[in-house]
Write a protein that binds this DNA or RNA. Sequence first.
DNA 1: CTGTTAGCGCATTCAG
DNA 2: CTGAATGCGCTAACAG
Lengths: 365, 365
Amino acid sequence: MERSRRWLQCRSTPSSGLGESVKTKSKPARDAGGSATLLEVARAAGVSAATVSRILNGGARVSEAKRAAVEAAIAALNFKPNALAQSLKRGRSLTFGVLTQSVDSPFFAETLLGIEAALAGTGYEPLIASGHWNPQEEADRLRRLLARQVDGLIVLFGKLSNDELQRFALHVPVVATGHELRSPRALAFRLDNELGGYMATRHLLDLGHRDIAHITGDLAHADAVDRLAGYRRALAEAGVPYDERLVVQGNFKEPGGVMAANRLLDAGVPFTAIFAANDQTAYGAHLALYRRGIRVPDDISLIGFDDLPSSLYTTPPLTTVRQPMFDVGRLAAQALLRMVEGEPATLDELPELSLVVRETTRRLR
Amino acid sequence: MERSRRWLQCRSTPSSGLGESVKTKSKPARDAGGSATLLEVARAAGVSAATVSRILNGGARVSEAKRAAVEAAIAALNFKPNALAQSLKRGRSLTFGVLTQSVDSPFFAETLLGIEAALAGTGYEPLIASGHWNPQEEADRLRRLLARQVDGLIVLFGKLSNDELQRFALHVPVVATGHELRSPRALAFRLDNELGGYMATRHLLDLGHRDIAHITGDLAHADAVDRLAGYRRALAEAGVPYDERLVVQGNFKEPGGVMAANRLLDAGVPFTAIFAANDQTAYGAHLALYRRGIRVPDDISLIGFDDLPSSLYTTPPLTTVRQPMFDVGRLAAQALLRMVEGEPATLDELPELSLVVRETTRRLR
DNA sequence: CTGTTAGCGCATTCAG
DNA sequence: CTGAATGCGCTAACAG
């Protein structure tokens, strides 16, 4: 079993004798072989820097002879313009700052994919940072992005106040999701989470369930509060009295779902269905039920919220309320693209939640 | 149900009459309010630019009076140094290019988290790009990252040849995972996937299984080939003849797992356990089994590979071979950090695979 | 301790 | 059509 160190080479050889001389910590080790400058290209082609610049950026007319010479020189020297210098000169970096909360969340990942898609081919590139649901950290990240001269900011959820968002919008256009805010240089939008909570609960009601438990998200988030409100509205509409013993708090993550489901089960108040505030919570709840030999959907129906990609492949596949996060990302990026061009802040489409019925919910016999 | 358009504001109002004048497409709309330059700070404080620069970057001694004046001016003007200009001047951008294959893969997400962790507090920031397992695209992405003057490159898996990797290493230090390569300015390492395949199969063997199916990954990937080799070695070592009818190809994704499991089941060759080439494949296989009323682990044992975060919360939790991707990311970033400081390319630790026994495998009765 | 002088690599007037 | 000059914002000698 000791085949695993095939490629190993630990450090700890203090005197490798090899090339390290006296700690070469002086100059950063970049460009041991490459990247000529525009000026060098110009010299090699026997023209001025301006000419090279011209042929680089479409623009003005240049004689065929020089163009050929320059192109040859570019190829020969393997020249790539220094994007930093270009940005400094042009005053735009072709970079958007994107603030996610955690890169490892499938929820944000899908949004990033949408942003990536919208930016493809535009020349813009996303610079991604994580705020970890911490307003301090979010603001800090945003400041750093600004220092790097991003041309616009996409803020995905988080706990920043509108005032702070506005403050950032003083510098560059901002598009934010999960916030409500509208000003000339800032555009924010939220999906209708209340409606989503209503849809989920209504689905359960339609299947004949009346004793419906709800595992909330972290109630410090507006989304969690809204989903709970939707749950209550559906119940009220159906004439089902609200029983607070059937509502327990989770935290939008799997362990929270496990614990909440256990609390629900231990409380002894009977229920036939669970509406979990998001898919991850549903996963946790499912596991807790499984541990007690309770089958989904045979014994208890379960519905989530988000429609993470993985929810299509849980066993059984999870019924859930879909948040079109790819579209959210795409639309946010498209709106920002327009804003940096000086167009007014608008959204050209409206991502909507939808019920995705799969196999974790079933009609009550 | 029409509550969902609360925040809507479609475009399509061609003549909003509001401020849009004659298409203000000229100057990018940045800095309608902020970010003074260092020179402005200097003037406001009545000192020279050099002095401001000095107090900004620790360095030399400055009189208390001037320091106070400068700091006041900085605060008053809300000055933040332009990172682009700093990079251009200093010749280092404090940015690492990170090439993932797809941002939406939980596998890569975990690695990114490790990179993020290693970079925290160093001043370096990752610039993330996606190659989508396409060598063309990977190379293109890498070139763009270089154009943005990244100080180093982290390449996570992918299909680039060693030659190409070397070519990039001509410009900046490179650390790559999933490749094998060692040169002064490039460091690459792979986990021992053959061993991992062996461990998974051996675990099944130890539980008394002898008819063990294997759903491979995309065999164009070396990892898939290695895992298969490990499977065969374990079998051989246990004196179990290799039966090619029990080996079907998947593609490292859920649908591939579903289809492969179905093929296995339809083939009619009996088996009591499945080793799936990765967790996502295992998810798919589990679903296929579920569809036919086959229970895991009661009827069939199932083991995956990766240990994605979600595998802890599948029902039942998945037995798998853990790839410590967080550590892989962290170690890669740390190695690169050292390399840009001019130190030789070394890894200071060795991420190892480990068997994580959970609840989808069981002793054969 | 501090101001002056030069650029980093490039795009853009402005004259030819 | 093209070259020379200028400066984006900042840092790093170099003199005081």
